[in-house]
Amino acid sequence: MNSRKAILLPKYQKIFDGIGENIKLARKRRKLTAVQVAERAGIHRATLHRVEKGDPSVAIGIYFNIFKVLNLEKDFANLANDDKLGRKLQDLDLI
């Protein structure tokens, strides 16, 4: 098993911490236990714990499965949706 630790600057780790906390709050608002969410997402309870702690080394597909269980897949679909910088760069190329 390949267990590399993802290394992030603290300001980026805070983003993952926030996502993990939001997932945990969404689970609790729905009155779902960690075991229930883990089983429905097809993951181990320890993996859900890592996600809720903001572990950036967890695969993005696992994050998606958890979002699906929580009925938040539309939120997931909005990741990188509004690429303002990319559009500006593209527009500069057109000039």
Rank of each mutant, 00 (worst) to 15 (best):
G61P: 03
Y12K: 10
L9D: 08
R30V: 00
Y12C: 05
R4A: 03
L92F: 12
N78P: 03
A80D: 15
H44A: 02
A46E: 07
K24N: 09
A34D: 14
E21W: 05
G42C: 05
I23P: 10
K68N: 04
V69Y: 03
N71P: 01
P56D: 12
R30K: 13
I7Q: 04
K24W: 03
K31P: 01
R50Q: 07
L92T: 02
Y63I: 10
I19A: 08
D83F: 13
R87K: 14
I95L: 11
I43T: 04
E21I: 05
K88M: 07
K53D: 02
K24P: 07
D83E: 14
A41K: 03
D17S: 13
R30F: 02
K14P: 09
G18D: 06
L48I: 11
K14E: 15
K28M: 11
L70S: 08
V35F: 15
H44S: 00
K53N: 00
E21V: 01
T33G: 06
V51K: 09
A41S: 09
L8N: 01
K14T: 11
L92N: 04
P10K: 06
F64A: 08
R27P: 12
N81G: 01
S3G: 12
L85I: 11
F64D: 09
I23C: 06
I66H: 07
K84I: 14
A80K: 06
S3F: 00
R27F: 07
N65K: 15
R87I: 14
Y12W: 12
G42F: 14
G20I: 07
A34H: 10
G54F: 02
R45S: 03
A38T: 02
A6D: 01
A77N: 10
A38V: 01
D75M: 00
N81V: 05
K28N: 10
A59T: 05
K11F: 03
S3K: 04
K24L: 04
K14G: 07
N2D: 14
Q36D: 13
K14V: 02
I66T: 08
L89N: 11
A77T: 09
H44G: 02
F16K: 05
L9H: 08
L70M: 08
L89V: 11
R50S: 03
N22R: 15
H44E: 08
L70P: 01
L8R: 12
D17K: 06
A80V: 08
I62A: 05
